[in-house]
Design a protein around this nucleic acid. Structure first.
Lengths: 123, 123
DNA sequence: GCCATATAGTTACCTACCGTTACTAGGTTA
DNA sequence: TAACCTAGTAACGGTAGGTAACTATATGGC
């Protein structure tokens, strides 16, 4: 505990950039994280499949998020020449390396938010 | 690797809520994460101290973020009766429990963004 | 009293992002 | 031809994020 907090201090002390700020700038948006999570968990997915998996995201917002994630080199967009021409979204190596972060968020949510979400005390 | 991905699948399969979505809804905003990080690393801080520590955040946005984090019960706002009346922001137990997530983000940023940020290839 | 400084914000304003609904567009199947 | 699959885009409105200036309260110095 003290060890890790020490680490956090060292990383940001007197620096003009901070790894947390940088990471938060990159993936610090609700849908970005969720999209990465689904691609991690379910593997490469098409546009509609991804939208169905996520649930509650509109095609416009998903389209925007995918474009942004591609720009940031976290996902690949590949056009597959099959019967109905599909598009397959998958994680880049950089994107896949975020697994530890996503997993930590998943564990934290599981531990701390289950009950709260269900009775609505944290909205 | 396979183990952890298996976990991610199990947690979200067929559920109407997902711990990642829930967590991302709670802290999936750039400044929220950064504020929590500074409070973790530097301990309780006043308004101006926090603003200075973060750098690049306006007082209006910081004010909004602090209000939101307090509503979500991740931080405490305590008025300290000293010479100039101060306000001290600190983490709640729930907020402090996010250390593992923040730490993971810090480690990831340190490993994957340092070079990229410096040469601007990820903006 | 008057001014400067330090505390912690607020107000007005603008822009950019989020979200909803509807619609587009190419190709396949019946 | 029409229905249905794929993957989006267009138009529009509301909310959040961001900037710059300003408020408010209290302390200490002149």
């Amino acid at each position: 505990m003290d060890q890790t907090i020490q680490q956090l201090e060292v990383w940001c002390a007197g620096e003009d950039w901070c790894p947390v700020t940088a990471t938060a700038t990159l993936i610090g948006k609700k849908w970005h994280t969720v999209v990465l999570h689904r691609l991690l968990a379910e593997g490469p997915l098409g546009f509609n499949a991804l939208q169905d998996e996520i649930g509650g995201i509109s095609s416009k917002v998903l389209s925007d998020v995918l474009e942004d994630l591609e720009e940031k080199r976290l996902i690949n967009r590949e056009i597959v020449n099959e019967k109905p021409v599909r598009v397959e979204y998958s994680l880049t190596e950089l994107g896949a390396s975020l697994e530890s972060v996503i997993l930590e968020m998943a564990e934290w949510g599981q531990e701390h938010l289950t009950a709260a979400e269900k009775d609505g005390s944290i909205a």
